[in-house]
Design a protein around this nucleic acid. Structure first.
Lengths: 126, 126
DNA sequence: TCAATAAGTTACCAAACAGTAACTATCAAC
DNA sequence: GTTGATAGTTACTGTTTGGTAACTTATTGA
């Protein structure tokens, strides 16, 4: 077997996958969109600490990466924009759930444990 | 059910888990250590593009995070240092394998596919 | 016509992260 | 006492990421 294998970040599927969701807010955004929070404004309300600029950036990224769709309804009063998960985005969410499970099992401080519980109720009610 | 849930990156177990492995080289380092590449020098040989500084930083990080052990053998000629996975590190590797599977299934360019095949041989031979 | 709402954009700033190149410390063998 | 190996450290630089605050565009309803 080849002993001279060389490893680089550019050819590592793990690194590339993590890149997809390593924006500070991306896992949360994917989670919220999957749960029907699909407007710019309602996403902002759920994440009071994110700025418009960064929210726009991360949404554009996710769109470019093929994880979400951006649909404009021009027919309405002020134009309305709806975000939704693509198939790839949905399958990635399943992976993120596994990451979530590992995290709640291994990272034990009070804040994240509290969060974990409230999220798990949501998961159970899916 | 509370509709006023607010989401923040500091209380998200997914974000925290991803932080553990979001150093540019960390998934690869964990992979190599698990496969017996456990010396500073041999790690460097497998990742020719990493600098000593960054390799040191990432190893120190992984140690602080409780994912690897750093053992010094002073008895020997030039002092020898051996890295190994902790239990947490090992369980994280299993998660990383799932991320790996998702990545190889969904990210299809030639370089990563080539890499994927060679890594899968290794996995099969575990 | 003027305020309100939705969904941004722009300019600017600070911290985090990755990288290069040169230098260091320790010991053993020659 | 100098060379070579192992495992770093230091100083400096450049890029990426996230953040603030103010401004913009389009449309509708009072």
């Amino acid at each position: 077997m080849m002993e001279t294998n060389e490893y680089d970040t550019y050819s590592c599927p793990v690194g590339k996958t993590i890149e997809l969701i390593s924006g500070r807010w991306k896992p949360i955004i994917l989670y919220l969109i999957q749960h029907g929070i699909n407007r710019f404004g309602s996403l902002q309300k759920k994440m009071p600490k994110i700025s418009k600029k960064v929210l726009t950036e991360q949404l554009r990224d996710l769109e470019k990466q093929g994880l979400i769709n951006r649909d404009v309804r021009v027919s309405k009063h002020p134009q309305e924009i709806f975000y939704s998960l693509t198939d790839t985005g949905l399958s990635l969410r399943e992976l993120i759930d596994q990451i979530f499970d590992w995290g709640t099992a291994h990272l034990l401080d009070e804040t994240s444990q509290k969060m974990a519980k409230s999220l798990m109720l949501d998961q159970a009610a899916k």
